[in-house]
Lab assay of single mutants.
Amino acid sequence: KTRWTREEDEKLKKLVEQNGTDDWKVIANYLPNRTDVQCQHRWQKVL
């Protein structure tokens, strides 16, 4: 388990703006080493 970088956080924010929060698998495709569940959790709990 690796810490999220600032770059990953920024990328996640942009991806959510573009794609919404309905399909985390699509978002995870753009973030290597991150699963859809990790992306969703990061968005809901941290950002």
Rank of each mutant, 00 (worst) to 15 (best):
Cys39Met: 02
Asn29Asp: 06
Lys13Pro: 01
Ala28Ser: 14
Thr5Pro: 01
Asn33Asp: 09
Glu7Lys: 12
Lys13His: 07
Trp43His: 07
Glu10Trp: 07
Gln38Met: 15
Lys1Met: 01
Asp23Met: 09
Ala28Glu: 03
Lys11Gln: 04
Val26Tyr: 13
Lys14Ser: 12
Asn29Thr: 14
Leu47Cys: 12
Thr2Ile: 08
Thr21Cys: 07
Lys11Gly: 05
Val37Arg: 11
Gln38Pro: 00
Gly20Asp: 13
Leu31Arg: 00
Lys13Phe: 07
Asn19Ile: 06
Val37Cys: 05
Cys39Ser: 03
Ile27Cys: 03
Val26Cys: 12
Lys13Asn: 03
Thr2Leu: 06
Asp36Val: 09
Asp36Phe: 09
Trp43Gln: 04
Asn29Lys: 11
Leu31Pro: 00
Val16Glu: 00
Val37Gly: 09
Gln44Asn: 14
Ala28Val: 03
Trp24His: 02
Glu7Val: 09
Lys45Gln: 12
Leu31Phe: 15
Lys13Cys: 05
Val37Trp: 11
Lys25Asp: 07
Val46Met: 10
Pro32Gln: 09
Gly20Lys: 06
Glu7Thr: 10
Lys25Phe: 08
Thr21Lys: 09
His41Gln: 14
Asp22Ile: 05
Glu10Val: 04
Glu17Gln: 05
Gln18Thr: 15
Lys1Asn: 12
Val46Cys: 08
Lys11Met: 07
Glu17Cys: 03
Glu17Ile: 13
Arg3Ala: 06
Asp9Leu: 03
Lys13Tyr: 14
Arg6Ile: 15
Ile27Gln: 01
Trp4Tyr: 02
Lys25Ala: 08
Gln40His: 12
Lys14Val: 09
Glu10Ser: 14
Thr35Asn: 04
Gln38Trp: 03
Val16Ala: 05
Glu7Leu: 09
Lys11Asn: 07
Gly20Asn: 05
Val16Leu: 04
Val46Gly: 09
Thr21Leu: 04
Asp9His: 01
Pro32Met: 06
Glu10Lys: 13
Gln38Ser: 07
Cys39Val: 05
Val46Ile: 10
Arg42Lys: 03
Lys14Phe: 07
Asp36Trp: 11
Trp43Asp: 04
Gly20Tyr: 02
Asp22Lys: 11
Lys14Met: 15
Glu10Pro: 00
Asp36Ala: 12
Gly20Arg: 04
Glu10Gly: 08
Leu31Glu: 00
Asp23Ala: 11
Val26Leu: 13
Pro32Asn: 06
Asn29Leu: 08
Ile27Val: 07
Gln18Asn: 10
Val37Met: 13
Asp22Leu: 10
Asn19Ala: 10
Val37Pro: 03
Tyr30Gly: 15
Asn19His: 06
Arg42Glu: 08
Cys39Tyr: 01
Glu8Trp: 00
Gly20Glu: 10
His41Arg: 12
Asn29Glu: 11
Asp23Arg: 10
Trp24Arg: 01
Gly20Phe: 07
Lys45Val: 06
Pro32Glu: 15
Leu31Ile: 09
Gln38Val: 05
Leu47Pro: 06
Asp36Arg: 05
Leu15Ile: 13
Ile27Pro: 02
Thr21Glu: 06
Lys11His: 08
Arg34Tyr: 15
Thr35Ile: 06
Arg34Trp: 12
Lys45Ala: 12
Asp36Leu: 06
Leu31Gln: 03
Arg42Ser: 01
Asp22Glu: 08
Trp24Cys: 02
Arg6Glu: 07
Trp24Ala: 01
Thr5Lys: 12
Val16Met: 03
Gln40Phe: 05
Ile27Leu: 05
Lys11Ile: 07
Lys1Cys: 02
Arg42Ala: 03
Thr21Ala: 10
Trp43Leu: 04
Leu47Arg: 15
Ala28Cys: 08
Gln38Tyr: 01
Lys14Asp: 13
Val16Arg: 02
Lys1Gly: 08
Arg3Asp: 09
Asp9Phe: 01
Val16Gln: 00
Asp36His: 11
Gln44Ser: 10
Cys39Ala: 08
Arg3Cys: 15
His41Glu: 13
Val16Ser: 02
Ala28Trp: 01
Asp9Ile: 07
Arg34Met: 11
Trp4Ala: 01
Val37Glu: 09
Val26Phe: 14
Asn29Pro: 04
Pro32His: 08
Asn19Met: 14
Thr2Ala: 06
Lys1Ser: 05
Lys1Asp: 04
His41Leu: 13
Thr2Glu: 08
Thr5Cys: 06
Glu10Tyr: 12
Cys39Trp: 02
Tyr30Lys: 15
Leu12Trp: 04
Gln44Glu: 15
Glu8Gly: 00
Asp36Glu: 09
Pro32Thr: 12
Glu8Asn: 03
Ala28Pro: 01
Thr2Met: 15
Asn19Asp: 08
Asp23Phe: 03
Leu31Asp: 01
Cys39Asn: 00
Arg3Ile: 11
Lys1Thr: 15
Thr21Gly: 08
Val16His: 01
Trp24Glu: 00
Asp9Pro: 00
Leu47Phe: 09
Gln38Asp: 15
Trp43Glu: 03
Leu12Phe: 15
Thr5His: 02
Glu7His: 10
Lys13Ile: 07
His41Val: 12
Trp4His: 00
Tyr30Ser: 14
Gln44Ile: 10
Arg42Met: 02
His41Met: 13
Val46Thr: 08
Arg6Leu: 14
Glu10Ile: 03
Glu8Gln: 04
Glu7Arg: 08
Arg42Leu: 02
Lys11Leu: 10
Glu10Asn: 15
Glu7Ala: 11
Val16Phe: 00
Leu15Glu: 05
Arg3Thr: 12
Arg6Ala: 13
Lys13Leu: 09
Lys11Phe: 04
Pro32Lys: 10
Val37Leu: 12
Asp9Met: 02
His41Pro: 01
Trp43Gly: 05
Val16Trp: 01
Asn19Arg: 09
Leu15Thr: 11
Gln38Phe: 00
Asn19Cys: 15
Glu8Cys: 00
Pro32Arg: 10
Arg34Gly: 01
Asn19Tyr: 10
Lys14Gln: 04
Leu31Lys: 00
Trp4Ser: 02
Glu10Thr: 06
Cys39Thr: 03
Val46Trp: 11
Asp9Thr: 07
Arg3Tyr: 15
His41Ser: 14
Gln44Tyr: 06
Val46Glu: 13
Leu31Thr: 03
Lys11Cys: 06
Glu8Tyr: 01
Glu10Met: 14
Lys25Ser: 13
Asp9Glu: 06
Trp4Asp: 00
Gln38Ile: 05
Gln44Cys: 12
Leu15Lys: 05
Asn19Pro: 02
Val26Arg: 13
Trp4Gly: 01
Asp23Trp: 01
Lys14Trp: 05
Leu47Ser: 09
Arg6Lys: 13
Ile27Trp: 01
His41Cys: 10
Val37Phe: 10
Gly20Pro: 06
Asn19Glu: 08
Leu31Asn: 02
Gln38Arg: 01
Trp4Phe: 06
Gln44Leu: 14
Lys11Arg: 09
Asp9Ser: 04
Leu12Gly: 00
Thr2Val: 07
Lys25Gly: 12
Asn29Ser: 14
Val16Lys: 03
Gln40Ile: 08
Arg42Tyr: 07
Gln18Ser: 07
Val26Ala: 12
Leu15Gly: 06
Gln44Asp: 13
Trp43Thr: 03
Asn33Ser: 13
Val37Thr: 12
Lys25Tyr: 07
Lys13Met: 15
Leu31Val: 08
Glu10Leu: 13
Val26Thr: 12
Glu17Thr: 11
Tyr30Arg: 13
Val26Pro: 05
Thr35Gly: 04
Gln18Trp: 08
Val26Met: 15
Thr2Gly: 06
Thr5Arg: 05
Leu47Gly: 15
Thr35Pro: 05
Glu8Ile: 00
Trp4Val: 02
Gln44Phe: 07
Leu47Met: 15
Lys13Trp: 06
Gln40Arg: 11
Gln44Val: 12
Ile27Phe: 03
Gln44Pro: 06
Thr21Phe: 04
Ala28His: 02
Thr5Ser: 08
Arg42Asn: 04
Glu17Pro: 05
Lys11Pro: 00
Asn19Val: 12
Leu15Ser: 10
Glu8Asp: 11
Val16Pro: 02
Ile27Tyr: 03
Glu7Tyr: 11
Asp22Ser: 11
Glu17His: 12
Cys39Ile: 05
Glu10Arg: 10
Asp36Met: 09
Gln40Ser: 10
Trp4Lys: 02
Lys25Trp: 06
Lys14Thr: 05
Cys39Gly: 00
Lys45Trp: 10
Thr35Ala: 14
Val37Ser: 09
His41Trp: 12
Thr2Phe: 04
Asp36Pro: 14
Lys25Glu: 09
Ile27Ser: 01
Asp36Ser: 12
Asn19Lys: 08
Asp36Gln: 13
Thr5Gly: 04
Tyr30Met: 13
Trp24Ile: 00
Thr2Asp: 08
Glu7Asn: 09
Gln18Phe: 05
Gln40Met: 14
Lys1Glu: 05
Asp9Lys: 03
Val46Gln: 13
Leu15Gln: 04
Lys45Met: 09
Arg6Gln: 14
Trp24Leu: 01
Val37Tyr: 14
Thr5Met: 02
Lys11Ala: 04
Asp22Met: 07
Glu17Lys: 09
Gln38Gly: 07
Leu47Lys: 04
Tyr30Leu: 14
Lys25Gln: 14
Lys11Thr: 05
Gln44Gly: 11
Glu8Pro: 00
Thr5Val: 03
Trp24Ser: 01
Lys25Thr: 11
Lys25Leu: 10
Asp36Ile: 08
Glu7Asp: 09
Asn29Arg: 13
Cys39Asp: 02
Gln38Lys: 03
Asp22Gly: 12
Gln40Lys: 07
Val37Asn: 11
Cys39Gln: 00
Glu10His: 11
Gly20Ala: 06
Tyr30Asn: 15
Glu7Gly: 08
Asp23Val: 06
Val37His: 15
Lys45Cys: 10
Lys1Leu: 00
Ile27Arg: 01
Asp23Ser: 13
Val26Asp: 10
Tyr30Gln: 15
Leu31Trp: 05
Asp22His: 15
Asn33Ile: 04
Asn29Gly: 14
Trp43Ile: 03
Trp43Arg: 02
Lys1Ala: 12
Gln44His: 07
